[in-house]
């Protein structure tokens, strides 16, 4: 017997993500999925961003890592609350892990939910968590060939943060080449140069985030799997 189906393979995850998005909308919360490779500076950027949004706007955080609670420990002082998910051998977060974390977070009091995904440039882009926007980080030490190597995640990004730009004079990194590679994938994506060390670009990034808080609550982030 042959059964013809034609269903998206990740539809179970997508259905849970849709419910998460409804919860965020009802809580008037902007959910932001942060994606990058390990060591690009996600946690430091989050620390600085959460502080910059205070005292007017409060942030709650979900952190995904294979192991340890180090990132959660670092973020705890300024965030409203933090839940650390240890994914074990899984290289990305699933929507149901976000749902389970919500019981430990005060979503109604927060203005933002930051989801720090597991450091990985491939799988996190494929799994909808219910977020409203996707932020992709690329740090200068990673090299200027990474957009061409991992194009898919950049195609789905709402903003690309080029991080650790304080190292631009030290390392050989062709920033124009990177911007051109990004523009071939996504003409509309915002590109901001930031340094968590010297503060460069932070006000531009935080203003962008605040503008998204106004316009994107409840919206579905761009997904590569929407076909």
């Amino acid at each position: 017997m042959k059964v013809t189906i034609a269903k998206r393979i990740l539809k179970d995850n997508d259905a849970i993500a849709e419910k998460n998005r409804e919860i965020f909308k009802n809580a008037d919360l902007l959910a932001v999925n942060f994606i990058s490779s390990p060591g690009s500076g996600k946690t430091t950027l989050l620390e600085k961003t959460i502080s910059a949004l205070l005292p007017e706007q409060k942030t709650t955080v979900i952190v995904g890592d294979l192991q340890t609670t180090r990132d959660a420990d670092r973020l705890e002082s300024n965030a409203l609350d933090v839940v650390q998910i240890n994914t074990g051998m899984s290289c990305h977060l699933y929507a149901n892990q976000v749902t389970e974390s919500l019981s430990g977070l005060n979503v109604n009091e927060a203005d933002y939910l930051f989801i720090e995904n597991v450091g990985n440039m491939v799988c996190p882009g494929e799994f909808d968590l219910g977020e409203n926007i996707k932020v992709v980080l690329l740090s200068i030490p990673e090299g200027d060939d990474k957009v061409a190597k991992y194009p898919t995640v950049f195609r789905a990004a709402d903003i690309v943060l080029l991080t650790k730009v304080d190292l631009l004079g030290v390392l050989n990194f062709d920033i124009d080449h990177v911007v051109s590679d990004i523009r071939k994938l996504n003409s509309k994506v915002e590109i901001v140069h930031v340094s968590s060390l010297n503060g460069e670009g932070m006000s531009q990034w935080v203003s962008w985030l605040k503008s998204k808080r106004q316009e994107s609550v409840g919206k579905k982030a761009k997904f590569i799997a929407d076909v």
């Binding site: 059964v3 269903k7 998206r8 393979i9 799997a225 076909v227």
Partner: peptide, 8 residues
């Protein structure tokens, strides 16, 4: 961009 289960 699709990954679809077609038939079994």
């Amino acid at each position: 961009d699709e990954i679809i289960l077609k038939s079994i």
